[in-house]
Amino acid sequence: MSNSVEDLAVLPASSEPYQIVYEDDVLLVVNKPAKLLTVPGRHPQNQDCLIRRVQREFPFAEVVHRLDYDTSGLLVLPLTKRVLSDISKQFQARSVTKHYVALVEGKLAKAKGVIDLPLAADEQQRPLYKVCQQQGKPSQTRYQLLSYNSAANQSRVQLEPVTGRSHQLRVHMLALGHAMLGDTLYAPADVAAKSPRLMLHAEYIRFVHPLSRAVLEFTVAAPF
């Protein structure tokens, strides 16, 4: 397993609380604040995280998917092994629909499209990732321009990851020439400095309830 930035760096945990968006006997849907790990990091100072906070109230909560430290938004947390297994299979089958909202530098040339660029760990710049045609794993992101602010030269974009590679949305948008505001890992310094946080938020998720088989969908608007 390659080291991630969440293993290597001390990442101060946000004091902003998580929000419960949905709760029943077998699962939770929560809204994670930015600047909070989903699970504990390897660094001893990175033990405060979303799942540990949730487990104080819901001791059996488990993680089935993650958001980066810098990313806010929706996460599904199973409360039983059966539900964990079922939702894991939905993710593996790519039947869970998710989309994100991001603020990026510049104006997109096309209003919508698919970014299909393989991604691999950047051995020369760990813990970063890069587009790599030779060793990269297949990676696809659907994108759609939502609005453009000409005064700031910034675009609001909806992003739907077809695959779920590490840092996929950041690297794919960078490859298009549109770095995310507040991205201290990939954006040029002037773009990174335009926001105190990464402007990336997991806004929408849809999946099938493991017991009732009802289709559940949730939206939490981006806080930016």
Rank of each mutant, 00 (worst) to 15 (best):
M1G: 15
N3S: 14
V5M: 13
D7A: 09
V10G: 07
A13C: 14
E16T: 15
E16S: 14
P17V: 11
Y18A: 03
E23P: 07
L27Q: 09
P44V: 12
P44K: 12
Q45F: 15
D48M: 11
I51R: 03
V54D: 00
Q55A: 01
R56M: 11
P59V: 06
H65Q: 11
R66D: 00
Y69L: 01
Y69Q: 07
D70R: 12
L74G: 01
P78R: 06
V83K: 05
L84V: 08
D86E: 13
F91R: 08
R94K: 13
H99Q: 10
V101Y: 05
V101S: 06
L108W: 01
A111C: 11
D116L: 12
D116Q: 10
L119I: 10
D122S: 04
Q124Y: 09
Q125W: 10
R126D: 03
P127R: 06
Y129P: 02
C132I: 09
G136T: 11
Q140I: 09
T141A: 03
Y143F: 13
L146V: 13
N149V: 10
S150A: 15
A151F: 14
N153Y: 14
E160L: 12
P161L: 13
T163W: 06
S166V: 14
L169M: 10
R170H: 02
R170V: 03
V171K: 00
H172Q: 08
L174D: 01
A175S: 13
L176G: 05
M180G: 03
M180S: 00
L181G: 02
D183Q: 08
D183I: 02
A189G: 07
A192Q: 08
A193T: 08
K194H: 10
P196Y: 09
L200M: 05
A202L: 07
A202V: 08
E203D: 12
I205E: 00
F207Y: 06
V208F: 03
H209T: 02
P210R: 09
T219F: 15
F224Q: 01
F224W: 03
